[in-house]
Design a protein around this nucleic acid. Sequence first.
RNA 1: GGGCCCGUGGCCCAUUAUGGAUCAGGGCGCAGGUCUUCGAAGCCUGUAUUAGUGGGUUCAAAUCCCACCGGGCCCGCCA
Length: 651
Amino acid sequence: MVSPFGEFKSQVEKYLSEIGLGDQVERLEVPSDLRLGHLALPLFHLHGKPINLVEPSGLIASVNVNNNYLNFKCNIKKLSEATFNQIKEMGENYCNNRVQGMQVIIEHTSANPLHPMHIGHARNAFLGDSLARLMKARGHFVKTHFYVDDMGLQVMIATIGFKNSPKKPEGVKPDHWIGFVYAVANIMYEIAGINSKLNENGSDYSSLVKKRDELIGYAASLREKFPKEFDELSSSLSKMSLNEWERAISTMIRGMEVKDQSTLKLVRDLVNTALLGFKETLDRVNVNFDEWDWESQQATEEDIRGLVESVQDSPFKMLYKGVLAVDCNAVAKLPEASKDLTLIEKAGKEIPPMLLLRSDNTTLYQTRDVIYSIKKLASADEVYNVVGAEQSLAQLQVKLALYAINHPKASRLHHVPYEMVRLPGRKMAGRYGSYVTLDEVIDLAVLMASNEIRRRNPQMDEQALIKSSEAIGIGAIKYALLSVSAQKVVEFQVERALNFEENSAPFIQYAAVRANNILSTASKRGIMIPEEPDFSNLTDEAEQEIILLCSRLPDTVAYAADTLHVEALASNVMEIADKFNSYYARVPVLTADNYSVIGARLALSKIVYMSLRSALSLLGIAIPEKMRTYLQPRIKLACCSAKAIQTTIAG
RNA sequence: GGGCCCGUGGCCCAUUAUGGAUCAGGGCGCAGGUCUUCGAAGCCUGUAUUAGUGGGUUCAAAUCCCACCGGGCCCGCCA
């Protein structure tokens, strides 16, 4: 399937080869001003080589040379027809742009089940989810995977806490509870470490005490949350010496690797509790997973032995501080690996070795990740890992390890990096229980949305209010995170994301709701969209621009999916909403002069609505049914200010 | 010390993949206008930029190359 605009482009390409410029098609571009044309070929490098134009046909309305450009104008009437027909045929799948499908695995979010998800996980989840939707629209067979980390050191600390912890109080979200238990346990563990160091000679007494005071500070704020539970938990954990902690932890790590049933059960209980909370949140934001891959189930002893042997047998084994490692530098010089150009260029010259085993022969996270990658590659043509940019080196090492053992699909493993999200004025420390949870941010967004709706539409019934608030509040967060290129650090300012004005999801949703409203008003008045609207009525510049934008949408989807640039789709959608908003404010649809014009404009509204709906669905953003506004002066209510609400929640 | 990423009006973002048309687009903010007519989360008018700095390649650079400056991140027998 090719986009309507893509059809125009291929006709232009055909035309170019007819006049002997077939080798120039790569230079075709969209002109800066559509009055100049709709596709243009710069002629500078041809230096006056004569061009013999022939009569255009099909979607090409005219061809002319102007200012050293060969300009092609599209027959907007025919382009509108093509777009309209494609939308009639494909409905909300209009944006789909299928190519030969591949088996694709996208691993994303994979938040540690030790604390609730925060806004950074949201960026990961929304990016991964949107990429999955985009690739499906591209015709790929996509499976989304969540990698559940149930094996790390930190998990064991949490589990020890969990074993000693009182019951979760009624009404507390399970992952929030685990976050509390983990933070208390970790603080107690760290304090035990400090206490033991304080008994040694020659330790830096004052800095240790300072660190311990800091930990006690964190503990104090944790105690405020659940005083009774805190006291119970901390008093049983405080009996443990550092030695006891370390023995318990390493016994458990060992237990996990040999699949000791009682250890597995303990850890599984903890992790399942956290996942219950994750699923609730992910469900609310409509992010779904096909598979939940538990780390402990991925790397069997056999897998580990196999990997170790492969490395041993490879020319890239090395000993680093006495333990087995992969010589990443040497691997990077492999022809196959260096063909993976971007990879090597981005890596720089000195790549530290990747350690495979601890000196007690237990595995490290990366070792398990190599095994997990092999498993993913076994069932997919391409594997994408949406993982924070701070792990670029680690991700690179995993890939190089695959090259080291000569894995045939090493080049098919891709790291999709994204930069961190900051919250102004807040330092997050998951290990100490200091964070703003994603749940809080969502609650705030939805609350603000519902305040807005209530202000603008006091009569909306409760059911509709809740549904619309969710669509608007969550849409706003998603758009704020997806519209910015993933490689930029973003500062997430709630009041900015929820501004609800231009450049936001609500703005786009508003345009869609309005377009849809025009359609439903028409149908209420018995006005039907003609089977074959006369698009020659669309003579307004804005109308033509809207058609062009919508007709290109499937191309943007292809670009976004193939190059992993979700933000390209986000800004294309914004352009459509922007143009349509200013268009309908100026040009009447239902009260136009005659039925022929009404029909064409109605069809245009349909094109806009379906385009937005289709594109927004690929971003995972819902369209609310109603955003009605009553005719009343705009009053800025104090209680609606984000700051006030944020303060309330923070307090 | 080494590496990766980012740097666009007072603030935020797009454009950077494939360099192109003497107006670099939006938004926020600020100043003003606009609801009896398809819903004002809208629309219209005004306001502001040496595209970090300097050099190079080119007929043409925000875009490619080099250097420098500023910010973020990474370099752990943590994950």
